[in-house]
Write a protein that binds this DNA or RNA. Structure first.
Length: 816
DNA sequence: CACTGCGAACTG
DNA sequence: AGTTCGCAGTGA
């Protein structure tokens, strides 16, 4: 019997291993196995099992599986199918896709070790080099790392040493490095035989006994909380047989100490009822169905998730909730804990490896009913998956930026289909892909156009920043009188305001007044941002930073101009304008460590009047005291060199606007812009998703952009610009050749580029790209594969492309 | 003819 | 990715 095993190397196929007799019948697809690989062992995932060797030519290379990592498979048949699908769809090596499903602690590596078999000695070995090796082995009773033997004999190779194996002189073993994370245990105590009247008991011991009395078990942690240094008293009690102690496995608690929120009883709106009914119908049929839950901010989407999940759990199913990383706040989890108690596992990047390990084990042991997590939680080893919720489904952070570049929302639908589950994509501003799928019937559309409790949508004003006869729009270039007035009124009413500016630092562009020299990053093709607090110039793409110079390095002039406004400067302006207000800034510069949480908490409790911030202030938080929201510059995202710029802008504006008026007071939103007529702004003002999407979809249809067309980007990255361009051109030539030869493909697929990427230099690397576009997904795919497989004399490993990193991005989201 | 260093090839 | 291997260039 043979197994195809996916190991974590950039190889597009799985490798064949023989199943040894002692493991015969125990190995199925989805099992984790330890396999020999080079001079070490690796953990691999079995993707299929065959009776015979398909390809006889590798017979001499095939090695035995060393061991089964766990008698329980990691994945079931469908799980393996899911990974295969992803590898295929995203043109990614299967081993690296499998890696996504294996957290670091199950990916163990072992070094190959030798030990002399009984009866063998350096005398029985005749070859001189191998005699030396045998001599080394003779010194030790323990297995010796083959690597060490090799290093101690000059000129020795692994291949040569392996003769010791074939000659039967040595036993082979793979000694694993110690796992970095361990199971945590805790001591528990219980009274077994309470002391009688005449037993003499110390006062501390008496207090301990009092604590333990009537309890099944009390943990050492709990005892220590009320009694300091109880160790000797405890061991005394134990020795005299009054109490007993034992160790138990415990899980580390990754939940923040955020109090569990008691769920409020809501009366469902008609829309919510209809949405739940539709999801319920699919659940009762136990069939796959995808839904687009299009609910405006404040329409009660979470309530729908909660009820849909509860119904699944009552039916014995489990649930998976995916959120953008940034929205995975302790408060969100607290809401779910309020509803579902402790049967929740949380997976996100903020957990320590040990916490991740514990959460994962709880899931694997079927101890949880709900998994809440970011993108990667898509691979949580849940069984009986009944429903997947993707909240804020339009969020671009669901697309993985490196490795297999999967989109968690799209793959949630795939997993859901494989598992016959319900998949709910929720958003106030669905992606046009999802919306189009809903309109065309592939997904069910569940609209919730009204806020709960009849709260009105906030009013949106568009403020034209354009120059009126050279006069600034207000107290500064970026603050109009209208917005400042609104903030003033808000403060007078003792309410709160949020001002959003998607640009951190003081000023994003520093230029010499005399010679026009612009300070730019040495590694990236961007200008440096001036940060006042550190008095430095910093690159926002790499970690390059210099002290703010006193004079221009080009011409020596001292008049250096700081152009443009970032959050730091805006905060300064506001402090001058509103000296008595409490103003806080929230961006990557201020939110390190626990600051983010602290600021958000303070803002929610009304200790802060005015919050200035970047993207961070737009997501998911619920601040009832906010009645005014200002968007300082809507044009920033509008002018992005990306076909999704308008969509992003609309989403962003709607999202920020949603922060206003979540309490009793209706909110008001001010959007400052140089493009007041733009349809994405106009639509955001009217809260009119329908008209925005109609217009945007028409454009996309015409240009064959998603959702009507399908894109695959081939990205090139190299330290040498020449090599980068050369590689891009060679690939393009190969593609053109294919397009000429295959007439059908030639008519269907468009190649854009090779072109310099919008960020042409990043972290010291030049970047070029080719975009393949077609209305047929199959066709773009075919061309991409043809390019990569070396159709038409195409050699990807040609020496000119040596140090060029080539990345294939299927359905790219980030076009920069 | 051995030794070094780099590029290419392969991993079962 | 991480190694191992082969080959060219160098030095004696």
């Amino acid at each position: 019997m043979y197994a195809q095993v996916a190991v974590d190397i950039p190889l597009f196929t799985a490798l064949t291993y023989a199943i040894p007799d002692e493991l015969d019948g125990l190995i199925e697809p989805g099992h984790l196995v330890q396999v020999p690989f080079r001079n070490r062992s690796k953990t691999g995932l079995v993707v299929s099992v065959d009776e015979t060797l398909e390809d006889e030519s590798i017979a001499s290379k095939v090695r035995d599986i060393v061991d089964l990592v766990d008698t329980e498979p990691l994945l079931d048949e469908r799980g393996v199918q899911f990974l295969k699908f992803i590898a295929d769809y995203y043109l990614a090596p299967i081993g690296q896709v499998a890696r996504l499903a294996l957290p670091s602690f199950v990916r163990l590596e072992g070094m190959k070790h030798y030990r002399l078999v009984d009866g063998a000695s350096s005398a029985t070995v005749h070859d001189d080099d191998l005699k030396a090796a045998a001599a080394i082995l003779e010194e030790s009773d323990e297995p010796v790392a083959v690597k060490d033997i090799k290093e101690r004999i000059k000129g020795m190779t692994f291949r040569r040493l392996s003769d010791l194996e074939t000659a039967g002189f040595v036993e082979v073993s793979y000694e694993e490095k110690d796992a970095r994370v361990k199971v945590r245990t805790e001591k528990f105590y219980q009274v077994v035989d309470p002391p009688g009247e005449d037993d003499r008991i110390g006062s501390k011991q008496a207090r301990i006994l009092e604590m333990l009395e009537g309890e099944e078990s009390v943990s050492l942690t709990d005892i220590r909380e009320s009694i300091s240094s109880p160790y000797s008293s405890l061991s005394g009690l134990e020795e005299r047989g009054f109490i007993r102690v034992w160790e138990e496995e415990v899980y580390r608690d990754p939940f923040e100490q955020e109090p569990v929120r008691k769920p409020e009883e809501h009366v469902l709106t008609l829309d919510q009822q209809q949405a739940l009914q539709a999801i319920g119908t699919a659940r009762q049929a136990n069939s796959f169905q995808g839904f687009v839950l299009h609910g405006v901010t404040g329409s009660g989407k979470t309530e729908v998730y909660v009820r849909a999940i509860r119904a699944e759990i009552e039916q014995g199913n489990r649930a998976l909730v995916l959120l953008p990383e940034i929205a995975l706040t302790p408060q969100f989890v607290a809401v779910f804990r309020g509803h579902f108690g402790e049967k929740i596992a949380v997976l996100h990047s903020g957990l320590t490896p040990a916490e991740k390990f514990d959460q994962w084990r709880r899931i694997k042991r079927d101890e949880v009913e709900i998994v809440i997590g970011a993108r990667s939680a898509l691979f949580a080893p849940l069984t009986n998956l009944g429903i997947i919720v993707v909240d804020e489904e339009h969020d671009t952070s669901f697309k993985q930026g490196e490795g297999p570049r999967y989109h968690a929302r799209d793959m949630a639908l795939v997993r859901g289909k494989l598992e016959n589950a319900r998949v709910v994509l929720g958003s106030a501003t669905p992606s046009l892909e999802s919306y189009h799928n809903a309109k065309s019937g592939r997904l069910k559309y569940l609209p919730m156009p009204d806020r709960v409790a009849d709260r009105p949508m906030p009013e949106v004003d568009i403020v034209d920043l354009r120059d009126n006869d050279g006069a600034p729009p207000g107290p500064s270039d970026v603050l109009s009188y209208q917005l400042v007035g609104a903030v003033q009124d808000t403060l007078a009413e003792e309410m709160q305001a949020i001002l959003f500016l998607n640009r951190r630092g003081f000023s994003p562009c520093v230029i010499c007044h005399a010679c026009g020299h612009v300070f730019e990053c040495v590694n990236c093709d961007v200008s440096l941002t001036y940060h006042r607090r550190q008095e430095s110039l910093r690159c926002h793409h790499c970690d390059y930073s210099i002290r703010m110079p006193e004079s221009c390095p080009e011409c020596g002039d001292q008049k250096i101009n700081r152009r443009g406004t970032g959050t730091e400067k805006l905060e300064g302006h506001l402090n001058e304008l509103f000296p008595r207000a409490n103003i806080a800034r929230l961006d990557r510069d201020t939110s390190g460590g626990k600051n983010l949480r602290r600021t958000i908490k303070a803002f929610r409790h009304g200790e802060i009047d005015l919050l200035v911030g970047t993207q961070m202030v737009t997501k998911g938080h619920d601040f009832p005291g906010v009645i005014t929201v200002g968007v300082i510059m809507a044009d920033m995202s509008l002018n992005f060199p990306d076909f999704r710029a308008a969509e992003r802008t609309f989403q962003l504006l709607t999202q920020v606007a949603g922060r206003a008026g979540r309490g009793e007071d209706p909110g008001r939103v001010y959007i400052q812009t140089y493009n007041p007529e733009h349809y994405s702004l106009q639509a955001a003002r009217e809260h009119d998703f329908a008209s925005f999407s109609e217009r945007e979809l028409a454009l996309r249809r015409e240009l064959a952009y998603p959702p009507f067309g399908h894109l695959i980007a081939i990205k090139f990255e190299a330290a040498s610009e020449g090599r980068c361009i050369q590689a891009a051109r060679d690939y393009a030539t190969a593609a053109r050749r294919v397009l000429r030869q295959d007439e059908k493909l030639g008519q269907s697929v468009f190649m854009l580029g090779p072109a310099m990427a919008p960020l042409s230099r990043l972290k010291g690397k030049s970047r070029w790209q080719i975009l393949l576009k077609s209305r047929s997904r199959a066709d773009v795919r075919k061309l991409a594969i043809a390019m990569l497989n070396g159709v038409a004399h195409f050699e990807p490993n040609k020496s000119q492309h040596r140090d060029v990193r080539i990345v294939v991005d299927v359905d790219p989201v980030n076009m920069l």
